[in-house]
Design a protein around this nucleic acid. Structure first.
Lengths: 317, 317
DNA sequence: TTGTACGCGTTATCAC
DNA sequence: GTGATAACGCGTACAA
């Protein structure tokens, strides 16, 4: 009845006589014995866990991503634990640090904001996948979507519909994706010889600011023919302002959003948005695929996966 | 330059000469050295982490709870990691098991469904707080809301408004809270000598089923004067069915929901629901309070905290 | 099949 | 101020 035998029983490994196995099982049951994963990990150097750090765990924007991460983790037999930075960059960095101390086999972080201060933490983390973010210096595994291209296509669609007076409500300019989307918009405008001055309206990703900015536009009595919004939430803010003023899309102004996967959690209302969908579920799956690859083959070179957006025609453009 | 000194430097402890401290610091920086939390936890028997297991990480219902957990954890200096059962009871049990193996100092689980199979796991976990759940046998720390009372008050409100023909759309009857709410409703009805037969319409917590059940009710041309819904989502399903048929609340039928904290993530629409709010944020805070108390004082006896619901008057009743 | 002894990477104890 | 040494709880060669 040595520790060796106990260990074998716990791990369902051969090399134990049936009698001893039964005896040990009985003792385990009787004492509600649970092996220490901590001690086990220390010797095996394996946690079988992936740590995911999000800016915020309370934003439906991430739902598709979370599902994708979950699905692929189950497939590949890893546990997943999620941490939220609670929209606080320091806290986010702290959690990346937390995971980096050997508590998980690999880390997935969503969206490096330009204000993010976790570069140092990332450098220490051996297995790291960054989603929709770009950290200078070290080469990482990355999962990105083609924001520039998506914005370009969305804008082009509006142009081909015959709209000329088009504006762009940006996302939060601290995010790389917002900049890329704005540049995609501007490129399309300039490619079709449309004005690129005074066509940018700066907002963040929140619905509220977009709402107020659109209110201003409406008050100015100078309403564009169409707009491309940097996010669906932005588009909804714009839309709400319009509806309040008795305006409708696309009649008074066409609207295209960006995201597409944001669930309408209450299952109601509003016209369906025309939008450029990003495949959140697939992004989550790919992130796990990459992190597991990094974990299981340390010699595998970092790669960047770029996923494409998909244009979804709704009722607003 | 022994490991003792290194350990002291890493933990900012005294007992190291300035010169050695500097030297060691330099080496740490140079090699991007990160101490192993695993090994540290093995000796200290401390992870400073709380594990939270939810049925689902992709349901806005939990947003307030998650925020509360976060807030109190920060206050009490614990890390929090979240796991999702992804609406699969086996997976949920698996994650409770996962945490139970010493990976965290304490576990918080939300909502024991009657189908939940994690009783065994819970028995092994020393520090455990269960929210809105009731597990027979062992005595746990619990955080609950007064579902019976909340339902009773909501129903009474309708009755005092003069409604007599009142029905109840239940939640998923596999959840204790659904049963409690139904019983609270029935008690109020019987206390005021109103009928308790044929007044229960069984739905789950999803919006979809409530929508279809209400459609049936409308087709039957036998629409009650008022209804008490077991959840806001249920209420919205009912409301959607009504609106589609040109009916409005409370004119054609008054509606009271239950939850109140479910955010309208798109910031729009619908009449504001009259509802019985549960203090999700406070529930999260209390759960952390209890788990930390259990962790830091092993001799503290398990307690049950019952939080009260709050009636919120909206536009539907 | 069984048991002994070592090591995983830390912290803690106690000499020096 | 410093550095051996033991211990945390496990897995695993290796010897028996």
């Amino acid at each position: 009845m040595s520790n060796t035998l106990v260990s074998r029983v716990l791990n369902n490994k051969p090399g134990v006589s049936p009698e001893n196995r039964a005896k040990i099982q009985a003792i385990i049951e009787k004492h509600n014995y649970v092996p220490s994963a901590i001690a086990r990990s220390l010797v095996t150097q394996k946690t079988s866990t992936i740590g995911v750090v999000l800016d915020n765990l309370t934003d439906p924007f991430f739902f598709g991503f979370i599902d994708g991460v979950h699905r692929m983790s189950e497939e590949l037999n890893y546990n997943v634990v999620f941490c939220s930075g609670n929209d606080d960059y320091d806290l986010k960095a702290q959690y990346i640090d937390y995971f980096s101390q050997g508590r998980v086999d690999g880390i997935i972080a969503y969206n490096s904001n330009m204000k993010d201060v976790f570069y140092e933490q990332i450098k220490k983390a051996s297995n790291f996948v960054i989603v929709e973010g770009n950290v200078p210096g070290k080469i990482f595994n990355k999962v990105q979507i083609n924001n520039f291209d998506g914005a370009y296509r969305a804008t082009t669609y509006l142009i081909k519909q015959g709209y000329k007076n088009i504006v762009h409500f940006t996302g939060d300019m601290d995010y790389h994706c917002s900049v890329d989307r704005m540049n995609g918009f501007l490129k399309a405008m300039s490619d079709y010889s449309l004005p690129t001055d005074d066509v940018i309206i700066y907002t963040d990703f929140m619905e509220e600011l977009a709402y107020h900015k659109m209110k201003e536009v409406i008050r100015s009595r100078n309403i564009p023919e169409a707009c491309f919004a940097g996010a669906d939430k932005t588009a909804y803010g714009v839309l709400r302002a319009m509806i309040e003023s008795g305006l409708t899309a696309p009649k008074d102004m066409a609207i295209i959003g960006f995201d597409g996967d944001v669930p309408d959690t209450l299952g109601i209302n509003f016209p369906k948005l025309t939008t450029m969908r990003q495949p959140m579920f697939e992004i989550g799956r790919e992130a796990v695929r990459l992190i597991v690859r990094a974990i299981e083959d340390p010699s595998a070179p970092p790669v960047t996966t770029v996923l494409n957006t998909e244009f979804v025609i709704g009722e607003t453009a």
